[in-house]
Amino acid sequence: MAILRLEQSDNQYTPEKLTLLTVHSSHTSRRHSVSVYNAQSTSKDLPVVILMHGVYGDHWCWMHLGGAHVVYERLRQQGLNEFVLVMPSDGGIGDGSGYLPLANGEDYDAWVTDDLRAAVTKTIDCVSAKSRWYICGLSMGGFGALRLGAKYPDNYRGISAHSSVTSIADLKLFTDVDEKLFTAKVLAESELLPWFIKAQSLPPLRLDCGMQDELYGSNLALSKTLNDAGIKHSFEAFSGGHEWSYWHQHLEDTLNFFNQIELGQ
């Protein structure tokens, strides 16, 4: 196991249903924080939804800027099945890691794929080796969700991306950090389409973007590229920009999408 050390919050001191983790990974030689919502459920083998943040962000953003737990609880009252929401840090390098295996040897792909799953399974009683995992992200996290979902299709039962960065070049819209920082260990690692083409069988895939978002054009182009390659997916365009009010609203689409997959199990 690549986890060197693991710290877990005490439930008596944290907000209801929330557990906080700090994971020291040998893949990155860094400490990573994780927010886990619905962590104290008494159910067993619950499905897990990973929610990945964008540039500048951290593990707390999905809840405390996007109200992910508020969306989840509202949908639960409407009949949504139980899920555990797992919200990891991307790794804390520069403005963002891209969730990539970087040329400097720090592997943020393995942090999400290996360490995150191991840490959550070890510490959260309602998650087990039998739990099904889903992956979602916004902006840079959307890029990460698309890339990791396509690269490791057997790990996930569904993939969703909101307002996704579709290439490393898109990050220039949000950060002045040298693009070379995001150079993967192998250059093709940072491209999306080769992973979709390479995958033998992909889980259900959806993406959406606001029509006022600066990434709308690149998301349209990605959808066309996937269509041209015969990659089955759905793309939805809504009113809205690159902003938390949009992601708060449309997280509902992701959770309902994953719920429908669960109902088909």
Rank of each mutant, 00 (worst) to 15 (best):
R5C: 12
T19Q: 08
S25V: 08
T28W: 01
H32A: 12
V34N: 02
A39I: 01
D45S: 10
P47W: 01
L51D: 00
V55M: 14
H59G: 01
W62G: 00
L65R: 12
H69S: 13
V71R: 03
V71Y: 00
L75E: 12
F83C: 00
L85F: 03
M87R: 00
G92W: 05
I93S: 15
L100D: 00
P101Y: 12
A103E: 15
E106Q: 13
A110Y: 05
T121Q: 09
I124C: 03
I124H: 02
V127Y: 03
S128R: 06
A129V: 12
Y134D: 05
C136H: 11
G142H: 01
F143I: 09
G144Q: 06
R147A: 06
Y152S: 07
P153G: 13
N155W: 13
R157S: 11
G158D: 03
I159H: 06
H162M: 14
D170L: 06
D178R: 00
E179Y: 04
A184R: 00
K185M: 11
A188I: 15
S190F: 00
L193M: 15
P194F: 01
K198S: 15
K198F: 09
P203S: 04
P204T: 04
R206M: 15
S218M: 04
S218W: 01
L220K: 13
L220T: 09
L222V: 06
L222M: 12
L222D: 11
S223Y: 09
T225H: 07
A229E: 12
K232F: 08
F235R: 01
E243T: 13
S245Q: 11
Y246R: 03
Q249Y: 09
D253S: 14
F257V: 08
E262V: 12
E262C: 12
